[in-house]
Simulated assay, not measured.
Amino acid sequence: MKLIETRKAAGTVLCHDITQIIRGVTKDARFRKGHIVTEEDIPVLLSLGKDHLYVWEAGDDMLHENDAAEILCRACKNDGMARSEVKEGKVELTAEHDGLFKVDKERLLKINSLGQMMIASRHGNTPVKKGDKLAGTRIIPLVIEKEKMEPVKQIAKEGPILSLLPYQPKKAAVITTGNEVYFGRIRDTFTPVIEEKLKEYGAEIAEHIVLPDDHKQVTRAILRALDNGAQMVLCTGGMSVDPDDQTPLAIKNTGADIVSYGAPVLPGAMFLLAYYGKNRIPVMGLPGCVMYSKRTIFDLVLPRIIADDPVTAEELESLGEGGFCLGCEICTYPNCGFGKGW
């Protein structure tokens, strides 16, 4: 930082805000720190009583906050993200399309642990809409050592730490099980709920089968749906531990790889997730709560399935913290704490 005459300041960078006060009109910064002084600015600065200015003195070992912010932005920005103009060392990212927002938590922590810089994002594994804000970055000081940004560049070589996976609309087969529905004792109110949830992500039901509590029939129906090209199979009913609840056994007997039967989420503890064959087609057993609760485990998993983002057993296990839905009278999901543990 050095002191210079304002008349000679064109092209230099201000080290501090310069406030303009007009009685009854404004009292605010007329020029912000980091502003590059132009010839047109000089008469205005003189009119504000600034005959001298403190400006940034460039050196080979230092970067201005805006230049450093560009490096930080490159470490974050990925396909499907729009960025703001850099201002005061800050850049914000927004979604250019609907999709599943992902965060590399480990590398995010590494950058935030470097000091003098920060990245703040919304939670990962969150469905977002076009135009939603995703993250903001900032360089804390006005100038920062160039060497401080080198670890950021190294981390960025692995690719951006943020990603926005577009949805891949899928055709689903729904297999409704239960003697009570099959024999017409009650009306199927489960399938319409699934249909609405699939529509949120551009997916649709291509096949719907109703079967009694017979695990052999259910197994055959799942395999037939897969042979017919179903891109996901959703089984409803028979997911409890009663003697007549045989859906988990039916899914297991298809030969699918069971990721988890049960999840630390309420509503949704009796959820089952499996992947079938070399193409890893998702097969799910949905507990009854999906039918009558506003948001459940299905709402947490479905956007990842639609975005072709594989779900692991460890990730499901991590949902215990944040996996308790409060059942708010006015639901704001996904802008709430539900399911933010993974």
Rank of each mutant, 00 (worst) to 15 (best):
A256D: 03
L45C: 00
E207P: 03
L100G: 08
T191R: 12
G202R: 11
G320I: 12
I4A: 09
D244Q: 11
N228Q: 14
D245G: 03
P127C: 00
L286G: 01
N66D: 15
K199M: 13
D79P: 05
E150W: 08
Y54D: 11
Q116L: 13
F31H: 12
A230R: 01
L3G: 02
V283R: 06
Y276T: 00
P43I: 07
L234E: 08
I139R: 04
E65L: 02
T176F: 05
F31V: 03
H64W: 03
L45G: 03
V181Y: 07
G255Y: 01
C328L: 08
A230L: 05
P264R: 05
Y333S: 08
S318W: 05
R304I: 07
D299V: 01
K340E: 08
G99E: 03
L319K: 00
H64R: 02
M239Y: 04
D245P: 00
D61H: 13
K197A: 01
L302D: 05
S84R: 11
A274L: 10
E195C: 05
G202I: 02
N253M: 15
T189H: 10
S121V: 11
P248S: 14
E57I: 04
I297F: 06
M270Q: 09
C325K: 00
C325D: 11
G11E: 11
V152T: 10
D67Y: 07
V265H: 09
G277C: 04
V301K: 03
K171V: 11
E57L: 12
L226D: 03
A206T: 10
V259C: 09
A95H: 08
G268A: 08
R107Y: 00
I111T: 09
G237F: 09
C76P: 08
K2W: 04
S121A: 14
G124A: 05
P141G: 09
K171F: 01
P282Q: 10
I36N: 04
D61I: 06
I22N: 14
P264T: 04
M291R: 13
I139G: 10
C289M: 00
L72V: 13
G115W: 07
S84L: 06
M291H: 09
F324K: 14
D299Y: 01
F271R: 02
I258D: 07
T247H: 05
I194T: 08
H208Y: 02
P127F: 05
F101K: 05
K102N: 13
I42N: 06
K129L: 11
C331D: 07
A9G: 03
K27N: 12
S293Q: 15
L109F: 12
A10Q: 12
T236Y: 06
V301A: 14
N179F: 02
V37P: 02
G277W: 00
D79H: 13
G184D: 01
L100F: 13
R7K: 14
E317M: 13
C325V: 03
A82Q: 09
P43E: 01
P287S: 04
I155A: 06
A206E: 12
V13W: 06
T137P: 06
L14D: 09
N125F: 13
I222F: 02
L114H: 10
D188P: 02
A221M: 01
Y167Q: 04
Y54K: 12
G136N: 02
T296A: 07
A68E: 06
E200K: 15
R295F: 07
K278P: 01
